[in-house]
Each structure stands twice: as C-alpha cells, then as structure tokens.
Nucleic acid binder design. Sequence first.
DNA 1: CGCGATTTTGACGGTCCTCAACTTTTGTGG
DNA 2: CCACAAAAGTTGAGGACCGTCAAAATCGCG
Lengths: 267, 267
Amino acid sequence: MTTSLRSNPTDLPPLPSACLPRPLDAVAAIRDVANDRFSMRSAVSIRRYEPRQMIFEQSQPCRHIFEIIEGTVKLTIALPDGRRQILAVLGPGDLLGLPLVQQHNTSAIAISDVRVKQIARSVFDASLLLQRRAAAQLQKQFLKMQDMIVSLGRRNATERIASYILETAKSGNHDDATPNQPPWSFTLALSQTDLADHLGLTLETVSRELTKLKNHKIIRMCGRNHLEVLDPSRLSEFADNVSYPQAAVNCEAPEPVSARRRGRAAR
Amino acid sequence: MTTSLRSNPTDLPPLPSACLPRPLDAVAAIRDVANDRFSMRSAVSIRRYEPRQMIFEQSQPCRHIFEIIEGTVKLTIALPDGRRQILAVLGPGDLLGLPLVQQHNTSAIAISDVRVKQIARSVFDASLLLQRRAAAQLQKQFLKMQDMIVSLGRRNATERIASYILETAKSGNHDDATPNQPPWSFTLALSQTDLADHLGLTLETVSRELTKLKNHKIIRMCGRNHLEVLDPSRLSEFADNVSYPQAAVNCEAPEPVSARRRGRAAR
DNA sequence: CGCGATTTTGACGGTCCTCAACTTTTGTGG
DNA sequence: CCACAAAAGTTGAGGACCGTCAAAATCGCG
C-alpha cells in the first residue's frame, strides 16, 4: 500500500528526500542534489506536479520560492496526531513558500495538474521585483487569513460553508459565460474532505450542510465537484446569519457584553 | 440584504496599487497633512491611550501607521451581530495598521495604558526603513496567524487554553527574576472575556478550563490576571499538539485517512 | 463599605463529532 | 465494455463538547 507513486492520496513518499519536487529527469535530479547552491541553471526552472504530489513539505528547509503558473495548490499544516488544517488554496500568479523563514511551516500539495516556476532563494533575495510581489501576495493572504480566523472562531458550520461558497463563487472563475446571472456555475477546487479540513469541520458535517443547501434549492451539484449557486441572496443569508435585520451600520461602539452575541452558534 | 455600508468580513476590498509602497509624493503629503485635524506636527506624533480606548476602528479610512512604544493593544474584528474575534495582541515595537489597505479592517483597542508613535501614511510610504520593519512584522504576524488558524480549526477548548498559556509563558515577559525555573510567573494581558474572544470560546468555557488547570495544580492564579505555571510539562501535555517550531521529528508521511484523527476533539 | 465588572458554578440543550453502514463515483484491468 | 476495487460521499443513531441561560460569588475601585 505504500508503493506506487500516485495511487493513494494520504499515502506519501516515505523518505524526506523523496518528498522534494520530482525533477524532470534523473540527470537533473543528480545535478540538483549535488550542486544545489552553485548550479546556475537550477536557479530558475519550471516544474510540473500531478494531483496529490507534494511540492514542498512542512519542516523541510526552504530553499526555493515557487510561483504558480497553472493549476491549484493547497497549503496545509498537520498536527502530530494527524489532524489537518488547510490554510489556503492558491492559484496562478500566487507565490509559494512566501514566509521567508528557514523552514517551511506548511506543506504545499498540488490539487490539479500544476506548473510552477521554481526560484532559488538566492535569486529571490536578489530581486526587488520578486520581493515586491511577495509583499503584495503576503498582504492579500493576510487579509484572507484574518477572515478565516473570524470564520473558524466565530461562525457555525452553516455559515462557514455558505460563506465559503459565496466567496468562491464571487472571486472564482465561473464555468459559464454569464457570470452575472444568478445560476453561478463553477468548479470546486476542494473535495469535501479537503473542504472539511479547510473549514475546521468533519467531512460528515460538510456533506450534511451541502445536502441542506441542496434541499433548500439554493445550490445544485452536478458531478463530483461542479456546483451551481441558484439563489445567491438566500445563500448570503445563510452566510452571515444576522439575527435582527441589520438596520444600523453596526460597526461602531460595541454593545455591552450582555446584549451582544457570544460564542459561535446561532439559528 | 447586505447593506453596502457595513463592512462585510467576507467581502474584502481589492488590493489596489496603493497598497504597495508609494514614492514620496509631495502634493499627496501636503494634502494628507492638511486633511489631518492635528496639523503639521502630526505627521509624526506621540499619542496616548487609556485602557479600552480605541486607536482606530474597523472600516475607518487608514491614514496613519502606529508604532507601539509602550503598552498592549488588541486587534479585533466584529461581526454584524456583535460576535467578536480578537486577531492579535500586540506590544512594544509592533506596528499597527499594517495591512496597507485603504480602510482598516480591524479595530485597535488599548488594553493597558498605551503610548504609540503615530506616523502619517505619506511618511510611511516614503520611508524604506519603516517599510522594511512593516514587512518583518507582517511575516511574524503571518506565522502567528497560521498557528491560530490551526488552533481554531482543529483544537478543542483545553488545547487552546493550554497552548495559549504555554505560548504566552514562553515568549512573554516573566514577572519574576528567574524565568527558567518552573514556577513561571507572568501577567495575562487579556481578561477571560477577551481570552474567549481570542480563542473562539465563551467566557464560561474559559473559566471552566482555567479552573480545571488550577485543580490539577498545573497553574495558579493570584489576583485577577496574574498567573503562575507550576508544571509546564503537564501543561504541554494538555496543549499536546504543539505547533511546528519544534517537534520536527514527526512531520513525515501522514497516516491514512481511516487512522488519523479527524475533527476537533480529543481527550 | 458598596457598587459594578468580572469570574465562578450549575443545569440543560444544541451543534457537531464519532462510529458505522451503505451508496455512488472513479479508476483499473481483464 | 463490464467487473471489480478503492475512493468519495451519504445517511443515521448516539453522545461529547461546549454554548446558553441564570444566579451566586469574588474582585477591584472609589
């Protein structure tokens, strides 16, 4: 069960060295390993990954920066006992291995077929242009992560699912040609299992919530990961779950503790 | 449904080019200063705040950057219905209003007596030194936020409390002069209410978890917010899955889905 | 001391996790 | 192309964790 290269999703290569980006050919592999620091030709190169392949791994030394050219990549952290959290889902133009630390603190795993530009740290450190892009990316990520923290800390399962779908639908690439008309149609990057690991839920809960939305005729799913938003406005009601019809612009002075909502749930 | 005025956490403003460091623009600088009700002298100025005072507020335009000189500040986001999440607790040396966006997406509130250096955006944008510090700060924050996401998504109440105390004890300023001997002694910056808003729990749960640790003789509390860690090693058992920095050993291949822990709880 | 804010404690219930069995989809080989 | 197996998703029953509500206790401050 631990043999094949790409069969099992959770079945990753046994040795750390094997987890390094798979080179395009054996010669390149040898060269990379031998001359990592010196070989100019490996300073910038294109690499390909298949779904489920690891681009880099948590706690590996961080020798390269990657720019996604094509495809989708998930950034994950695993706790010692196997629980996982997907921190971000990145696409073309995004940079990987951004936090300029010595060791990767996340693993990057290809979701679809992926092409990345691999850039040696030395090149990155010398390029102001790249660093500027990295800063911009960092900030974009930063805002997303803040939102994620609020979701995980203060939203219930329904709200998390609904707002994830809304977010993806709004920002995402629609499959059809009429992205403004309500039946928004798009492809989910994540499986339900991954969605659970992204939203801090279990796969069963994700499944049940999606079923609920389907029964309400708010979404429709064709095939494994194709989703249509039939009723965006009702979906956003599920997403922000405001109890009293928000009259005021209530981002002002916080209400007294006794009056405001606490905790997570609300229905 | 969703009013345009309310700042919606799932609806972040795009990142315009203005987010990138902007060359010093004399006209812009003069305009900024003119618009500032505190006149010329406020391009860089020292300000003081008392506990609970707001330094800036969610959805306000972001005209200044603040550097904390003294005291502690919490960064919070409020949902429309009043639920809150404390995103970070910052101290001397830290910068506020970092994400260089047009509008603050968080509120900054003084916890203790606070002194900050208020720096006009124009000054900030012209200072490479400041920008460099901002980038460093951003990265530090980034890693903390990643850890926070894992905590909120995948840890139960006990683990969150325990690892918060551990983290604070390790990084924090100890009150006593022997920071290496087990009875670690320090002051909690957050009230239990705020702790709840930071860890995605309710204040009752926080109280119960702290009581549990007290009964186990793992911590001791003298006064409102003074805490002593009596038994760090048992505390870290409660925190259990400590995050990436150490524990480099067990970051190898994840176990198969059927075997690994799912969801949040574990006891 | 007296008052308000904060914390503690208890009882109860809901959300979501756990376990388990089943169904559907996907992928592979004969 | 179908059979088969593995992966992914669905559904149900039950219970744990933690949120909710309520009231009492404690702390801190004038």
